[in-house]
């Protein structure tokens, strides 16, 4: 059943889209990740233009994160003040990111740039994930988790100090602002939530207790992906409602299945799988970049 996507300006099989939504939703439920980093490259690989793929990825991540945020908020695991500071940084990051995106689109380089970003970021993240899990499998039962010490560094000399009660931190608002900005930038260009970088940054750079990290990062992810979707829609015109609806239908169903299975499937083996999946996505995008296209020239309206 071919269906015409008005914004992406292409025809796709509707069942394929529902299927992709289902698959990505299933995986994100299974692994507890947003899924933007899977959806955006998949859409690019089936031929959806990058700007539409990025906007849809951000949108999907937001949908996947809202229910997680509600669950965490109910258990009182969200540091709202820290979240708000991260969101302010994130909002600035998305504004700059979308400007950059629009500029790249005017240059006609946006497809290459997005793919390159993905290859680099996913390549690094995937490699680290696989390495870490493999090491953890070999070392299972031995040794305790790496401890971090409460340390004072140059970051404590910065101005604008705030008391983050929930995180038991008294620190400058500048480091979380900076981290939020970086994630916002990444989110605007790649259509991801950025949780897999935000969470380690919050623990290792900000020193937040792990209990509030997941909830607070979800709060930032929901706000930032919402902002990316809005800005992309306004500035780049990249939100395709037909595409989004079809993906959502599959995604909602898939996430339920994935979450139910994820409860039973846990531990290091799952993480190796996730790492390999990330690497596979990076690899296929790299192949797409390097291989000689079937049609060497494309004809389109002049911009």
């Amino acid at each position: 059943m071919e269906i015409y996507l008005p914004i992406a300006e292409m025809s796709v099989n509707a069942f394929l889209l529902v299927g992709i939504g289902f698959g990505v939703g299933w995986l994100s439920g299974l692994f507890g990740v947003g899924g933007g980093f899977l959806l955006t490259p998949l859409l690019i690989l089936i031929g959806v233009p990058s700007h539409v793929a990025v906007a849809s990825g951000a949108n999907q991540t937001m949908g996947a994160s809202v229910s997680g945020l509600i669950a965490q908020a109910r258990r009182d695991n969200v540091d709202w003040l820290m979240g708000a500071v991260l969101v302010v940084g994130g909002a600035l990051g998305t504004v700059v990111g979308v400007q950059l995106f629009a500029w790249l689109k005017r240059l006609g380089q946006v497809d290459t740039a997005v793919s390159l970003f993905y290859v680099v970021v996913l390549g690094v993240v995937g490699t680290l994930m696989v390495m870490e899990s493999v090491r953890a499998i070999f070392r299972r039962r031995g040794g305790r988790a790496a401890r971090r010490l409460h340390q004072h560094s140059w970051a404590h000399g910065l101005p604008l100090k705030l008391r983050f009660r929930k995180s038991r931190l008294y620190m400058s608002a500048l480091p979380p602002l900076g981290i939020g900005f970086g994630i916002g930038l990444l989110s605007a260009i790649m259509g991801v939530g950025g949780g897999f970088m935000l969470v380690p940054a919050m623990i290792y750079l900000l020193g937040m207790p792990t209990a509030v990290v997941i909830g607070t990062s979800l709060f930032q992810v929901v706000c930032v992906t919402a902002s990316v979707t809005m800005l992309q829609a306004i500035q780049v015109g990249g939100v395709d409602i037909v595409l989004t609806l079809l993906l959502l239908v599959g995604g909602v169903a898939g996430a339920q299945f994935g979450a139910a299975m994820g409860g039973r499937l846990r531990g290091e083996e799952t993480r190796v799988l996730l790492g390999l999946l990330v690497l596979a996505v990076a690899g296929s995008l790299l192949w797409d970049l390097l291989s000689v296209p079937e049609q060497l020239f494309s004809v389109g309206p002049g911009t």
């Binding site: 507890g32 090491r135 790496a146 290091e268 993480r271």
Partner: peptide, 8 residues
């Protein structure tokens, strides 16, 4: 719950 990084 599932988190992306084993160390975390």
């Amino acid at each position: 719950e599932q988190v992306e990084w084993a160390g975390i």
